[in-house]
Design a protein around this nucleic acid. Structure first.
Lengths: 249, 249
DNA sequence: CGTACGATTGAGAGACTTCAACAAACGTGG
DNA sequence: CCACGTTTGTTGAAGTCTCTCAATCGTACG
């Protein structure tokens, strides 16, 4: 690997993300760095794609914090996943014409739009990259399954602990966390929508977690004093993230 | 399409399933019909793959009823999806070496094992088939998301109605349902594990659904007298199944 | 300095669970 | 073909987790 390439990969979130879930050749890395990207800056609470859209681009997150959600007929909202720099939350639009959920920012974020055609060309030339992107969509599905287990079978206390474990581990994988914590710009109301809990209850359970010394959460700054303990509390096993090097945060 | 091919496709569940979500050329159909398949008959409550396995084949369901599940550390079980003939519940093993959940039969079933390599060869020759399989894994993910919404935000009554809608619609798509119902070999305890409810509560809500005239469920035989009504009760919108021809059952 | 949004607290209500018992259906072997 | 055990379905009652409603507090920001 030449130095210039290494330099660049430090600053390309997509490359860093893909390298966290598989191994790329130098040629493949170059191909990714040369993808055409149309950068946009979006304010907080802005939709990137909406339920029913038929987008012609995929959206790579460069900075910020994004969520996937769906609004029910009675107006309540279920958040189905959080997305961070390096993620492409609407990669599925490559093979499903109509998007069946919405994706929007939680805070001011910057994203890069990549035309579907560029991605198709990419894996026509580098079939391995196609498989890696497929792999990425499968990991996305694995996260839904794990989320489902939490909402279906875990107590509120476990659910929140589990979610915090997942987020910190993913942030760590793309270099967005420090030793024992990270920035987490998610309101208690958003946690509630994600975990199927009311805001009031989220608040109470967060206090329990603080009381038990498992988390320090002030504003949007999360610190985890005892990683092992939080992992146990949340029944968290990172296998489903399919990271190639599993390091304890 | 020649007659012989049409004949065969009638009896190949995989073909029927893939044709419900996309369009295949005659050549592609032939390729699928010639996939090497190692048929196995499995008793009820038998695991096909287990959490942690590294399989070298994919498993196509030919007959029976299968579920995807995960067992929590405290022994409780969350079922994350039901699978019917034509489905390949462990297609993900093509790109994720380690399986992060288990798949097992609910009743006596027959499955066909297809070597990973045969599938890779298939889409090397017919790239379009690769995209269709990718599409299938994305639809799988969409079903998890919809399941998640149910477990997270819908009442037990809505959840059960929604699940019954989904199952009937999918059965219909592969020709396993009659005009207004189908065979559904799922116990109340399994419904509970799938929906995050206790068996007792499932029983009571099923009685409510019967009382309201939305379902007739005797043994494993499900009849839906009023499709519209059940769909409304379950807040069901089949868009997420991404079927190419949406017909009301 | 007011306003708005998010966090916090209290109290009462409801959906669902757990425990326990019993009835019905099913398959199996004698 | 019946007796038997096992699984599945059904019912009752008590308990609990979580929700809803409503009010208050804190803080960032124009």
């Amino acid at each position: 690997m030449n130095f210039a390439l290494h330099e660049q990969s430090q600053h390309n979130p997509l490359l860093q993300k893909l390298e966290s879930i598989s191994v790329l050749s130098d040629e493949e890395k170059q191909a990714i760095l040369h993808l055409p990207m149309n950068v946009r800056v979006l304010e907080a609470d802005t939709d990137i794609v909406r339920d029913g859209d038929r987008p012609s681009d995929c959206c790579l997150i460069l900075s910020g914090f994004i969520c996937r959600y769906k609004v029910l007929s009675d107006g309540r909202r279920q958040i189905m996943g959080f997305y961070i720099p390096g993620d492409i939350p609407d990669l599925q639009s490559l093979h499903l014409q109509v998007i069946d959920n919405s994706v929007g920012t939680l805070v001011k974020s910057s994203v890069a739009l990549i035309p579907h055609q560029s991605l198709r060309d990419l894996w026509q030339r580098y079939p391995n990259l196609g498989e890696i992107l497929w792999r990425d969509t499968l990991i996305d599905a694995a996260m839904f399954r794990e989320w489902l287990i939490g909402v279906g079978r875990r107590s509120a206390y476990q659910r929140i602990a589990h979610l915090l474990c997942e987020l910190l581990m993913r942030m760590k994988a793309v270099g967005l966390a420090n030793e024992s914590g990270c920035d987490l710009p998610v309101t208690q109301s958003e946690f509630g929508d994600a975990l199927g809990l009311s805001t009031v209850h989220v608040n109470r359970v967060l206090q329990d977690l603080r009381r038990d010394g498992l988390i320090v959460l002030r504003g949007s700054s999360l610190t985890i004093p005892d990683w092992e303990a939080l992992q146990t509390a949340g029944d968290f096993d990172p296998a489903y993230l399919h990271l190639i090097k599993e390091e304890a945060p």
